[in-house]
């Protein structure tokens, strides 16, 4: 009924966290440059946290957007107040909240866990030594 709202709410929080992280990373980088310290650090062998969080935010926004369309398709979301048809009836509202707390939370967990696995694998891939250039055919 409105399960995508849980993911949308998580997306808002993650986007804000990614922005804060990006600002602090930029600040740290500029401090390093000011001190003329070597920029190559451990962080460069991993994706920066701001980028990792932005990937999660994009997954959540993308999913929430397309699921919102599905809910419009089924007549559960309408373009006029209160936007959710389930809000018109207390019984439907209770059902909607139950759906959000079960299906909605499960959706958000699936996306977040998949993202965590992706980022773990991405870090392992970045730690790999670069592949040797292939020899030209004789």
């Amino acid at each position: 009924m409105a399960c995508f709202l849980v993911s949308a709410a998580e997306a808002v929080v993650v986007t804000a966290a990614a922005q804060i992280m990006k600002n602090s990373e930029m600040k740290a980088d500029s401090q390093k440059l000011a001190k003329k310290a070597a920029v190559e650090t451990k962080q460069e062998k991993h994706l920066p946290w701001s980028k990792k969080l932005m990937i999660l935010a994009q997954l959540l926004w993308g999913g929430a957007f397309l699921l919102c369309f599905e809910h419009i398709w089924h007549g559960e979301v309408v373009p006029w107040f209160p936007f959710l048809t389930a809000m018109n009836d207390p019984g439907d509202t209770a059902e909607m909240l139950h759906e959000m707390s079960t299906i909605g939370v499960t959706m958000a967990i699936i996306v977040t866990v998949t993202w965590a696995i992706m980022m773990f694998v991405a870090d392992r891939i970045m730690e790999r030594p670069d592949a040797k250039p292939q020899k030209a055919a004789a």
Partner: peptide, 21 residues
């Protein structure tokens, strides 16, 4: 090309949750 990837994977994962229920 990353935009359609995150869009469709995000929606697929969320519909997977729906499908489980």
């Amino acid at each position: 090309p990353g935009v359609p990837c995150v869009l469709f994977w995000g929606a697929s994962l969320m519909w997977l949750g729906d499908a489980i229920f």
